[in-house]
Nucleic acid binder design. Structure first.
Lengths: 250, 250
DNA sequence: CGAACACTTGACAGCCCTCAACGTGAGTGG
DNA sequence: CCACTCACGTTGAGGGCTGTCAAGTGTTCG
């Protein structure tokens, strides 16, 4: 809670190629960083640009609404929640960001962050100065393309939950989506920890916390999932995917 | 209904500098095209890249879901509706795009358009080959920045309607938003034509068409608006802005 | 052990969707 | 000029999903 945005701490943890290549393989920038056949000088430039920041502990903010926008960041470890507070004081969760995913993209249009970002557990980040990565992107078409794609994808995901889906469809889509993203990063797709509170899920899915509770209980009674506090097991994935199908564009 | 995407017709209407400078001043690319202090050669490159296509008449599609993605386009005249059909056959309207606004940005992440785009009235477009404009953006930082900002802004607008707002709030935000965008383009902000059907508005706001009808009628009874078929007059703008405030982040 | 918090469970109400019928305006053909 | 058609829009009645309010349970932590 320093008030400063993206404090440049822990600079001692610099990019270590040996370790980075494996660690960063799940990152959204991995294509740009590792595989685009960039010449060594360009690759070095990108790695020089990265600042490893954190760790942030649960409840600590990475940035706050209104902070001047200077950088985007990729999650290295942990989960980041982005949210905003409307004038009635209600919290709207924009997204949960897992390792390899990028935060701050919706701030590019303005000069300030339009939302808050808070760590849900212990979080470390790769910080990219946006002015600098923009300049670099003019020299690295692969990097520019990566940025375009990241931005474009977020437009699509933001549109998905905008539909008028039922509570069951929303919850199913949330669980399946989370499962797929975890699987893509090497975690178990059928059994994982929910790092966010029920209230966070509710604010993300635009439901009441009580509804989240009831839907999860009903899912469990129907044998679709098994829930124990923050731990969840997807027992009947086909059924879940079918329920979520309308949202996850099938 | 040719089935071909972005047909390159009407190529005879080429960029005419004398006319373009005034016409394009309201366009999303105007900063990149006109004012960024680009050298003449660069400016010429961008104008060379533009293809003026259309006109499309009401009901004709600009592109369809699944079409290979090759280009983005700025609306020159008319209104374009982007939408998708879910597996239950329900239409979800992603947005209405006025002159100066850009369509196709959500297709960049994939290699195919994720939605349909249809003309609501007579529409003409400026087509930009995306591979070509990407290459050009590496040489013109101002253009790259413009693209980044356009993409980023769409993330934000997509998130806005995702909230759990009431029908009144949604309708008010829709009217105020439309009014502001029209005003920014030199049209009257208080009296304008709705180019879309009630059903389109409903599918955009995630309401039933009947609800749209009822809300508009109540607004009229309360003296907030005056409606006559597709023509609408915002009689009490402060009241509308207040109702929409929660969505239009004030 | 007590307090704070997260979560669950139940009762009730309200908003909005669904279904149905009717009204209206534009275009067409006689 | 009129009857007809059809799409669009309006109006009404009823019901379902989910939010709200309230109380209770379980967990964590000081």
């Amino acid at each position: 809670m320093t008030g400063t945005t993206f404090p440049r701490v822990d600079r001692s943890i610099v990019a270590d190629d040996g370790d980075e290549f494996t660690f960063c393989s799940t990152c959204a920038f991995s294509h740009a960083c590792l595989s685009q056949g960039l010449d060594k000088a360009s690759l070095k430039d990108l790695h020089m640009l990265v600042e490893h920041i954190g760790p942030f502990h649960a409840g600590e903010h990475v940035f706050r609404e209104g902070d001047p926008f200077e950088a985007i960041a990729a999650v290295r470890a942990g989960t980041v929640k982005t949210y905003s507070i409307d004038r009635d004081g209600r919290e709207h969760v924009l997204g949960f960001h897992l390792p390899g995913e990028v935060i701050g993209l919706n701030a590019i249009a303005g000069d300030r962050y339009p939302c808050n970002a808070v760590a849900l557990d212990t979080v470390t980040l790769c910080r990219f100065s946006f002015p600098q990565i923009s300049v670099l992107a003019t020299r690295l078409p692969g990097l520019q393309q990566t940025l375009f794609r990241l931005l474009s994808r977020d437009i699509g995901t933001a549109s998905l939950l905008a539909g008028d889906w039922t509570a069951d469809e929303r919850m199913a889509a949330f669980l399946v989506g989370l499962s797929r993203r975890l699987a893509a990063r090497g975690f178990s797709p059928d059994r994982f920890q929910l790092t966010m509170a029920r209230t966070d899920i509710a604010n993300y899915l635009r439901l009441a916390p009580e509804t989240v509770s009831r839907v999860l209980k009903r899912f469990q009674d129907e044998g679709v999932v098994r829930v124990d506090r923050r731990e969840i097991e997807l027992a009947d994935r086909p059924r879940l995917e079918n329920m979520a199908g309308g949202i996850l564009q099938s």
